[in-house]
Each structure stands twice: as C-alpha cells, then as structure tokens.
Design a binder for these strands. Structure first.
Length: 259
DNA sequence: GGTCGCCTGGTA
DNA sequence: TACCAGGCGACC
C-alpha cells in the first residue's frame, strides 16, 4: 500500500490524532517491533506529548516534547487506524499508541514489516534521502546529477530513495510509462529532454495517485502499466510486458517506452 | 548492480 | 503447494 501519497495521507491522519495529546502508553504487539523498542524504552514515552508529526519521503517522524523522535516506516503494508483505547484490535494490529484522552492510534500492518524506532534528542533518525518530488530542488538538472554516477537501468535507480524520496515500485513504473522511457534505459545516459519529461511524469503520477487509489475503478484500469502484463498499452496497440529488475516486477510497454 | 531475509496473507 | 506482494538493509 504505502508509497509517498499514501504515507502523506496517513501522516496527516496521525498528526490529527496525536499532536498535543499526552501519551498514556505505547503498546507493541509483535516481536519484530519489540526487538527494536524495548519495554523500558516504551515506558519512557508515558506522559510525553507528541508536538509535531513530519513526513519525509516514506518516513514519518513523531517529535516528542523532550526532543526525542519516534520514527515510523510502513514498509509494505502498514497503515494507521484510529479508535478508542479499549477497542478490540484486529489481529493485524502490531502496535497501539494510547492517548490520555482515551483515543488511540493503531499500526495495522499485515506483513509485520513496518518499523517503529525511538531516537535520542539531536540524533538524525533519517537515512540519506533525495529531494521530495514536489520540491523545487527536484529538477532535471538535480536528477541528472544524482543519476550521473550510476551504472545500470533507470527503474531500479528510481527506487533508490537517495535519488528521489518517496517513489515505490508502482509509481516508478507508471512514471516511466508516462515519460515513454524504458525501465531498461541506462540511468546515466538520459538526455536533458528526457530528464525534464521524467521529472514532470513523476509529479504527474504522484498527483494523480490518490484519485486512482481510492477510485472504484477495477484494478485493471487503476494503473496504466502496473500489474497489467499482457494487457493492451493504453497509448497504442502494444502489449504490456513484465520483467524483473533488482528482484522487483517491472511493467512497461516495449512499443512506446524506448531505451 | 544482484540476492536474501524479514513477515504474513492472498491467489493460482 | 508454490508463488507473489506497493520496502529496505545487509550481504556479495
């Protein structure tokens, strides 16, 4: 589920749910989270207040009133669900933030790959990240510079969060289709014109994303190429192919996406 | 770059 | 039963 548009939506929900309300308790319900957040650390959160929620790429940062940061990353299937502290929990809920006013926010994550980590005041909880796609610093020039030293094809490069923050497997494939660039095109040899087109395409697919995701369209029409192997390319008579790059499925139209 | 492991659940 | 999954860090 979560790529940048979904994480943005989730982080807003989280912000509305937690900011300014003292924490009653943070409960961790799955061993994969407990390995990173001990009971002792969890106890230090009681009574603290989350003063801000920030999103950077697919990362969510909860800033505490003592300067520490609770960092959340959804990975593949995470999402926030709001409720009350005493609610019966779905079996896929992996953690719960109980607030002093009786409300609660749950981390619902069927695959249990999401992470929740606590960082000391002053520490940077984030890995190196490229620009936000919506930021003015994300340009054909900056993208070209980030790609200049890379070997290998463009598609895996777009999934590298140091190149651009927030793209995932679906929107990388969709953006390349939009830009008519083959996922196999060498990353470092894209022309300036193609880089400009790609920057526009990335913004376009991310802006269109929420409507696509929450539309009632059948899955086959939600995306242009993603998960549509064998289907007709929406742009012409070509047939969409699936290939594997860096262990991930990539979908594209060999007819109109050129190296 | 590629491959594996982390986890669980849906689907062929 | 086997394979697949929107992520990412560790390893080669």
């Amino acid at each position: 589920m979560p790529e940048l548009p979904e994480v943005e939506r989730a982080s807003r929900l989280l912000r509305d749910a937690v900011v300014g309300r003292p924490i009653a308790a943070v409960r961790v319900l799955h061993p994969s989270l407990a390995r990173r957040l001990t009971a002792i650390e969890l106890a230090t959160l009681n009574g603290r207040v989350i003063v801000a929620v920030e999103r950077r790429g697919k990362h969510q940062l909860m800033r505490l009133d003592d300067g520490r940061v609770l960092h959340a990353h959804f990975r593949m299937t995470g999402d926030w669900v709001t409720g009350r502290a005493g609610d019966a929990l779905r079996p896929t809920v992996r953690a719960v933030i109980d607030l002093a006013d009786g409300s609660a926010v749950a981390l619902d994550d069927s695959r249990a790959l999401a992470t929740l980590t606590l960082h000391a005041a002053g520490d940077n909880p984030l890995p190196a990240l490229g620009p936000e796609p919506s930021d003015a610093t994300f340009t054909a020039d900056s993208l070209g510079a980030a790609l200049a030293t890379r070997r290998g094809p463009i598609k895996p490069a777009l999934l590298d969060q140091r190149v651009v923050a927030g793209l995932g497997n679906i929107y990388a494939a969709e953006a390349l289709w939009e830009a008519r660039i083959s996922p196999r095109a060498p990353a470092r040899s894209l022309s300036d014109a193609r880089l400009r087109t790609l920057v526009r395409a990335i913004r376009k697919v991310l802006e269109r994303a929420p409507a696509a995701r929450y539309s009632d369209d059948s899955r086959s029409s939600r995306w242009r190429v993603y998960d549509r192997e064998g289907a007709r390319c929406p742009r012409h008579d070509g047939t969409i192919r699936r290939v594997v790059q860096a262990g991930r499925s990539t979908y594209y139209c060999p007819g109109c996406q050129r190296r």
